[in-house]
Design a protein around this nucleic acid. Structure first.
Lengths: 336, 336
DNA sequence: TTGAATTATGTTAACGCTCACATATGGAGA
DNA sequence: TCTCCATATGTGAGCGTTAACATAATTCAA
């Protein structure tokens, strides 16, 4: 019958239960010193009014929000978005909620704007999934003294927390299996040069090249898309001497490589072996199934949150690397 | 030199600028009646103190937060996470920030918990990307009078806003091209039966079957993974009479189908044609490239936000469908 | 029975902002 | 010069919660 214009407050509950608002607050926060009788009365009143606590008021009063801000760059890629979802899941399990922003472009001003907003909003901490150096720097700059974890493979000052899946290890694993199969000429199709994952993977490739092999002409930059993988492979195949193996910077480009080889009538792995990176959905059913590097996004999410809690608690900064796992499928074999 | 224990408030700025707190508030909110001189003084003070507005206090005072809550179910799938990112991008462009939660399981209690939290947090509206009927119902229940948009293909009461990519149209497009090529026997590998997209696609498939064709034995339920697509295709190929085409419920399962056909030595599209759904990255480089249905996630994000703004403004509820687009590639052709 | 310790509850004042209203300026028109 | 209105600024209260302190009720040992 009654017009419920505005939602009930703690005072309404207190009134109905015949206690003070502070007692209601105590019930709400599970304070030990509340008699069971009072607890019952208050719970009753809460239920009958459909009372819901106002978190803005709580945040204002306590200075803490149980919310973390998560910034993700390059959201169109599967990796960053997988990281976001893993982080969110872990955060919620730990009683934290996530405020998020995804950036497609690589604009430091946008990074600053997002981080500033998180701070204004009163988040307890920030996790930034940064794919480029620009993004890392803008984050470091803007985050100030706010507890922050950088999920990046880029360089971070020793007094900052950072974590990432070990891109170098992953690329090493890819190169190790190829070298173990006695491949003498291993080409690499990398991601964009400004992408930190791309450059770490490419650097590992270069370092792991079989002794005496000249990297010139064996490295082509792609943009993570299957089309660019296809195009890069076609370019490699136009050379006089063909590589015996191609290490694609990610699985999607690997798909492009497989198709290029198919179109050119070159068998895999008989003619050329192919290795990808990421272990995306469907990589087990390409033709042939793609040998690749599996990334543990879930582990990354857990580690990020673990580090953030340390940062919030004021512990000393540290960095972590999440191990990768080589998945051997049919696209790799001994060269002819 | 000075110990900056707590961050500066509007009062500190007012003091330094020699004006009242209300004047600072006016500057902060671009109120017209502020002299340029005062504006300058205040801006100066804000900059020199490094003042940042406290949004919790603002939310408490105004009752509005410029934050929307986005709930996403089945986050391990590419569709829902693409929708989330598109929604977030559109929201931020419109001056809204996103609080999010992703659910992997299909537990109505979790849905309720998340929606309740959004409400407690003081969001201005909620967008729920719900893949199952359970999730839709829990959302309807929990959201109450909060402006809410359901991104779902499920049934929603007429007084609620909803939108989704038109799954029925997409499946129709897939069937239309196959029937246009004179396929007489079209099998379908669906997603999980409790998935609304899966069931709409399957229903369209059933309705569009060539006249007189018996659907029995032509429908197999998968779980969206390439492995399940592979297994389902193998089952279909074990039948006495083979279908002339296979409509896979999504591209990932389509990859499995392609590999199964390859393993059985059946040419595509010569022996059997294959159509997928989603147009995921890499679908253009499968062997052969996969004919599929493209989903406009960006358009979905824009539409969701558009509807949510209407809901917040108190407009009458309505529903929308985002059109799909048929992408014809090499995996479809006339049957032998 | 008494007094201290313990438990249960109430009172008041923040938290940092905006709203509604009150007041002070500065011209323009008479 | 005075009134009137628009522009510019200040004052006080309130948003809904928790923190800090004060008080009342209970328990327990001496």
């Amino acid at each position: 019958m009654e017009e419920t214009r505005t939602s009930p407050t703690i005072a309404d509950v207190a009134h109905l239960a015949g206690v003070s608002h502070q007692t209601v607050s105590r019930v709400l926060n599970n304070h030990p010193s509340v008699s069971t009788k009072t607890h019952h009365k208050v719970s009753q009143a809460i239920a009958s009014l459909g009372y819901r606590r106002n978190l803005a008021a709580r945040t204002l009063a306590t200075g803490t929000s149980r919310v973390i801000g998560v910034l993700v760059t390059r959201t169109h890629l599967s990796g960053p978005s997988a990281a976001l979802l893993a982080i969110e899941q872990t955060a919620r399990l730990g009683g934290y909620w996530v405020s998020m922003a995804g950036l497609q472009r690589n604009d430091p001003k946008e990074v600053t704007e997002v981080i500033s907003h998180f701070i204004d909003q009163g988040v307890d901490g920030i996790i930034a999934v940064a794919q480029t150096e620009t993004a890392v720097e803008a984050t470091l700059q803007a985050s100030g003294s706010m507890p922050t974890v950088l999920v990046t493979s880029g360089a971070v000052p020793p007094d900052r927390f950072s974590v990432d899946i070990d891109q170098g290890e992953g690329a090493d694993q890819a190169m190790t299996i190829l070298k173990g199969l006695r491949h003498s000429s291993i080409a690499h199709i990398s991601g964009p040069h400004d992408d930190l994952h791309a450059s770490v993977r490419a650097e590992s490739w270069r370092r792991a090249l079989p002794a005496g092999q000249d990297p010139n002409g064996l490295l082509i930059e792609g943009d993570w898309t299957s089309q660019s993988g296809y195009g890069a492979a076609m370019t490699l195949l136009a050379n006089k001497t063909l590589p015996t193996a191609i290490f694609a910077g990610n699985d999607t480009m690997g798909f492009g490589v497989l198709r290029a080889l198919h179109d050119r009538g070159i068998g895999v792995p008989g003619g050329i072996s192919v290795v990808g990176f990421d272990d995306i959905a469907g990589a087990d059913c390409s033709i042939p199934p793609l040998t690749t590097i599996h990334q543990d996004h879930h582990g990354l999410g857990q580690a990020s949150m673990e580090l953030l809690l340390e940062a919030i608690a004021g512990h000393e900064a540290r960095s972590m690397k999440i191990p990768t796992q080589l998945i051997v499928r049919a696209s790799t074999g001994v060269p002819a």
